[in-house]
Amino acid sequence: MSNLTKVFIVLLTITSIFLCAIVVTYVANADNYKTRYSRIISERDALEQSKESLTSQLNEKNQQKDDLEKSLTGRIASEKAKADELRGKLGELERQNADLVQRTNDFAAVTKAFSETADKQTQTLNAALEEVKQLKAEQIKMGRELEEKSQALMEKTAIIETLETDKRRLTEEKADIQTRLDRLLGAGRGVAAAGLPVTPERGPAIAIPPVDRQVPLKGLVSEVDVRNAMATVSIGSADGVMKGTKFHITRGDEYICELSITDVDTDRAVGVLDLIQQQPRAGDNAVTEL
C-alpha cells in the first residue's frame, strides 16, 4: 500500500467522521416540519373558521348597524325637530324671563320705597304713641288736679251756703228785732211775742274730707326678677298706679306675695316683692284689693 493510499485513507476517514458528525448534528437538531405543517394547517383551518364566524358576525353587526343607523337617523330627525321647538320655547321663555326680571326690579323698587315709607310711618307712629302716653299722663295729672279743685269748690260752696244761711238768719233776726222795737216804742200795745227766725241755725262749715277715689286696680305680673326680689306689673300711671301702691299677687285662689310699687311708668310699674309665700311668675294676677 502506497503512502498516497494511506494518506488518502486517513483523509477519507477524517472527512467521513466530520461529515457524519455534521449530518448527525443537523438531523438531530432539525425541526419536525411535518408536525409544524400539521399544526400550521390546523391553525389555518381554525383561523378560517374563525374568519368565517367573524365574517358572519361582521355581517350581522353591519346589518344591526344599518338598522340602528336608520332608527337613530329617524330619532335624530325627531330630536332635531324637538330641539327646534324647544329653542323656540326657550326664546319665548327668555323673553318672559326678561319681562319678569323687569317686573321684579320694578316691584323691588316699589317695595323699597314702601319699606322706607313704612319705616317713616313707624317712626311717626312711635312718636305719636309716645306723645299719647305723655298726654295720658298729663290727663291723669290734670284729672287729679280737677278732682282736687272740684273738692275745694265743693268746700267753698258749702261755706258760701253756710254764710248765706247765716246772713238770711241774721236778716230775719234784724227784722224781728226791728218789729219788737217798733212794738215797744208804740203806746198801749203789749209786748209782742218773740218770733223765731225761719231759717234754722247751722253750725260752722265743715270741710268735706277728700273723697277716696281710689278704685281697685287689677293687672298682671309681666316680669319677675327673682334675684332682686322685684316684679313688673302690666299697668302704670295711666291706670292710676302711684308710687307706694301695694298690689296683692294671687294665682287663682292662692295668695302669692305682696308688691310695693317703687317706680311707675305710663303703662307699667315696678315694685319690690314682700311677704313672699310662693315664687311669683309672669301671668299672676296683681290687684290692690282682694
Partner: peptide, 18 residues
C-alpha cells in the same frame, strides 16, 4: 497493514450508522 483497513472499516461503519 491492517491498521488502515480498520480505519476504513471504522469510517464505513460510521457512515453506515449515520
Amino acid at each position: 497493514s491492517n491498521i488502515y483497513t480498520v480505519i476504513l472499516a471504522i469510517a464505513f461503519g460510521l457512515l453506515l450508522a449515520t
